[in-house]
Design a binder for these strands. Structure first.
Lengths: 107, 107
DNA sequence: TCAAAAACTTACTTCAGAGTAAGTACCCTA
DNA sequence: TAGGGTACTTACTCTGAAGTAAGTTTTTGA
């Protein structure tokens, strides 16, 4: 059974999703974690050289709050924190693929 | 044959798409035009009461520049301008549906 | 005892996108 | 000749996301 959408409610629904993806760095982070990859804070820093620590944390925290990323803290001598996608976060992959395919289809 | 994506290039590709959808009103306009609907400027104004004329034009012009909307001008006594989606614009619909379905799937 | 590594936090500035409000061009009708 | 409808422009202000740069905590090993 599919929901009934009005133009306004559909737009609103998509906008909720876009809010999760917005933010200059979320997509890059996302694609670094797709496929079940697990990364530490410092690994993400290295993988995305242009990002500042403030931005990296800010985006990760928002993604965590949105339920697409989980944080695992290891109480160690030099601290260690790992980030990975939630199951729901992983499922974003095909939806984003659909957007990429649409873009390739431009005439 | 599918393109090979790096985290950076995939993120960039999706970002190009998001740029097309961003802008506070583009989605609402989009959903008002999905399904082959044709609307005049004043009809869109009425359909989206909160939008200002400036914003409506601004967004429509950007969507036109992005190739998802076409403008048809009728040189009439009181001017008449119609907006409709391009074929490519229509094809966005299933991709946005994928996002909506993903959102519904939240646990 | 002092530096070093990792994961943050805090304070400040900058700028583009959005909002507000008003004005313009065109031609017809009364 | 004055007003009205349609589709725009223009000039200004405001706000929030992003950038810069520096500081904080914790414990170990030299």
């Amino acid at each position: 059974m599919t929901k009934k959408w009005t133009p306004a409610s559909a737009a609103d629904g998509v906008e909720q999703v876009l809010k999760i993806l917005e933010g200059k760095w979320k997509l890059v982070i996302l694609f670094h974690l797709f496929g079940g990859q697990v990364k530490r804070f410092s690994e993400l820093e290295k993988a995305i050289p242009a990002i500042t620590q403030k931005m990296l944390i800010q985006q990760l925290r928002q993604m965590e709050a949105d339920g697409i990323v989980t944080r695992t803290i290891y109480h160690q001598v030099p601290p260690k924190v790992e980030y990975r996608l939630t199951d729901w976060g992983q499922e974003l992959c095909p939806a984003l693929d659909a957007l990429l395919k649409w873009a390739e289809n431009q005439k």
